[in-house]
Every structure is written in C-alpha cells, then in structure tokens.
Simulated scan of single mutants.
Amino acid sequence: MTTTEFTVTGMTCEHCERAVKSEVGEIDGVTAVSVSAATGHLAVTTNAGPVDTDEVLAAVDEAGYSAEAV
C-alpha cells in the first residue's frame, strides 16, 4: 500500500469532506481516502504504487476545492 498526502484549501465542513472523499474515491486504484476540513489534510491510499497526483488534483477541483501535494 502507498499513501500520498495533499493539502486541500477551501473546505469548511463535513459536507466539504464528503464531496472531496467521493470524487477522489472514484479514481481507479484508490482503496482509501481520509480527509479533514479542520486541518485541510487529504490522504489517498492505493494498493499498487503512488496515485496519479494530477488525477487527485483534478478530482479535488471537480469537488470545488484546491489542492497541492505535500
């Protein structure tokens, strides 16, 4: 398993967390997503190597927020 971490800006509540988790969770190969609006932290876990950073950034953008890899 490989976990890649991101910082997400613009999240303020549980609804925001669910939106990001839902979008990122749809990426092929993602097995777990952990997100916190309070800290702006996003962790994406896959079984086979690191997740495609561009795909995660696009998914977060689709949810309405901004992100960058840590």
Rank of each mutant, 00 (worst) to 15 (best):
His41Phe: 14
Ser36Arg: 15
Ala58Val: 06
Ala69Ser: 10
Val24Leu: 03
Ser34Asn: 11
Ala67Pro: 05
Glu5Asp: 15
Thr9Ser: 14
Val20Trp: 00
Pro50Glu: 06
Met1Glu: 12
Glu62Ile: 09
Val33Asp: 04
Asp52Gln: 09
Val30Trp: 00
Glu68Met: 12
Ala69Trp: 00
Val56Arg: 00
Val24His: 00
His15Ser: 05
Ala19Ser: 08
Val44Arg: 00
Ala37Gly: 13
Thr12Tyr: 01
Glu26Ile: 13
Val44Gly: 07
Asp54Ser: 11
Ser66Asn: 14
Gly64Arg: 06
Val30Met: 04
Cys16Phe: 03
Met11Gly: 03
Thr7His: 11
Glu17His: 09
Ala69Arg: 02
Thr9Asn: 12
Val24Arg: 00
Gly25Cys: 06
Gly29Asn: 03
Gly25Val: 05
Ser22Pro: 04
Ala19Pro: 01
Arg18Tyr: 11
Thr53Ile: 10
Thr7Lys: 15
Phe6Met: 13
Asp28Lys: 08
Glu14Arg: 11
Thr39Gly: 14
Glu55Met: 10
Thr4Val: 06
Asp28Arg: 12
Asn47Gln: 13
Ala38Leu: 15
Val33Phe: 07
Val51Trp: 00
Phe6Trp: 03
Met11Asp: 02
Thr3Trp: 01
Met1Trp: 12
Ala19Trp: 09
Glu62Pro: 09
Ala32Trp: 07
Gly40Pro: 04
Ala37Lys: 11
Arg18His: 10
Pro50Asn: 08
Ser66Leu: 13
Val56Met: 05
Val30Leu: 02
Ala43Asn: 03
Asp28Tyr: 10
Gly25Lys: 02
Ala38Ser: 13
Val33His: 07
Arg18Lys: 14
Cys16Thr: 03
Ala67Glu: 03
Gly49Val: 12
Ser34Arg: 12
Ala67Gly: 08
Thr46Met: 09
Val35His: 04
Glu62Phe: 00
Val51Asn: 01
Ala43His: 01
Ala37Leu: 15
Ala32Pro: 08
Glu26Cys: 13
Ala38His: 15
Val35Arg: 07
Thr31Tyr: 02
Asn47His: 09
Asp52Arg: 04
Gly10His: 03
Lys21Asn: 05
